[in-house]
């Protein structure tokens, strides 16, 4: 397969020293193996994420995303934009839909962009990293590179909300998307297809502002994974990853539970399965250490 090239929108949480920095590390290693070339959009800005709604209003939110589109067009005309963060992808896609469907909104957006010396001529396609993997590469291609299958590891695929709704990955159902389970299978691990909290909301931004509400959600998500005998949880979304992982201690305190389950990104699993070491997979970035993966990552690769 020839090199696949995309304009890359990492988003705030993937920045160095931010909450999803380990995600970015693993994505970089994964893309190297798969011969996917991501070129960061120069001087990109925050997507506005859905929680910004109160202050933002409608147009400013779309304008923020449009600036990224404009920059991408300026520097990498014709390239699709890939995001790794679910919220960034969703926000950008929403802006794309709205601008495409409303001429007024589009005109207003262009007017505002002018202030920053930018413009949009063509709407870019907005893709999530997992869409690129599934649709542009395919499971067969991804599987080809597995040299260290994660044999015997039981993993609950936690899809969460924003990669799943309202847009979702093409061909998947909102109530029971399967792609994450297939990815788990692809890396040689054991999926839990009837994990019933697969698409439950982790509480999103409420984890910060109203922790007790979000933590009730997180408890359900983790508990069910335990009930199914999972050793770890995998997710495609930085907010899901962060919420489900870092609040387990708080949930334990609140509910008297003893949760201690690692929460991984799909890309981390892939990097380890592709023969990468713990560092390349960003395993050092886990608040709850993924010992089992670390062990596997330390093993020699069978070729």
């Amino acid at each position: 397969m020839a090199t696949k090239e995309y304009a890359f929108y990492p988003g705030c949480s993937s920045q160095k020293g931010a909450s999803a920095s380990n995600y970015l590390t693993s994505v970089e290693a994964m893309c190297k193996t798969l011969d996917v070339k991501l070129t960061e959009i120069p001087d990109w800005n925050c997507c506005g994420a859905s929680i910004g709604y109160a202050e933002a209003g409608e147009l400013p939110r779309h304008v923020l995303n449009a600036r990224n589109f404009a920059l991408s067009e300026q520097h990498m005309p014709g390239k699709e934009i890939v995001a790794t963060c679910a919220a960034c992808w969703l926000g950008a896609r929403e802006t794309r839909e709205r601008l495409t469907h409303s001429e007024t909104l589009m005109a207003d957006t262009r007017e505002a962009l002018k202030e920053a010396g930018l413009t949009i001529n063509e709407m870019p396609n907005i893709r999530h990293m997992v869409e690129v993997l599934i649709e542009d590469l395919g499971f067969d291609e991804m599987k080809k590179h597995v040299v260290r299958p994660l044999e015997g590891v039981k993993i609950a695929g936690y899809v969460g909300c924003q990669t799943n709704r309202p847009f979702g990955v093409d061909g998947e159902s909102f109530e029971n998307p399967q792609y994450l389970d297939k990815m788990v299978e692809m890396v040689g691990a054991e999926p839990i297809p009837d994990y019933e909290q697969k698409v439950t909301c982790c509480g999103g931004a409420l984890a910060f502002s109203e922790p007790e509400k979000a933590q009730a959600q997180i408890k359900d998500i983790v508990e069910s994974a335990y009930d199914h005998g999972a050793e770890m949880i995998v997710t495609p979304c930085p907010l899901c990853q962060a919420n489900v992982e870092i609040y387990q201690g708080q949930v334990n305190k609140r509910y008297g539970t003893k949760f201690d389950i690692p929460v991984m990104y799909y890309s981390q699993l892939m990097v380890v399965a592709y023969g990468g070491d713990a560092k390349a997979a960003g395993l050092n970035g886990q608040v709850i250490k993924a010992r089992r993966l670390e062990e596997i990552a330390a093993k020699p690769v069978k070729r």
Binding site: C12, S13, Q15, A18, D43, N45, C46, G48, A49, I51, G52, Y53, A54, E55, A56, L64, A205, L206, F208, S209, E210
Partner: peptide, 19 residues
């Protein structure tokens, strides 16, 4: 709280362009 956070987030994000 969420209202407050929402405002905070927006200010934080738009101040420098990133969160």
């Amino acid at each position: 709280a969420t209202r407050f956070f929402s405002g905070l987030f927006w200010k934080n994000a738009t101040h420098t362009g990133r969160v």
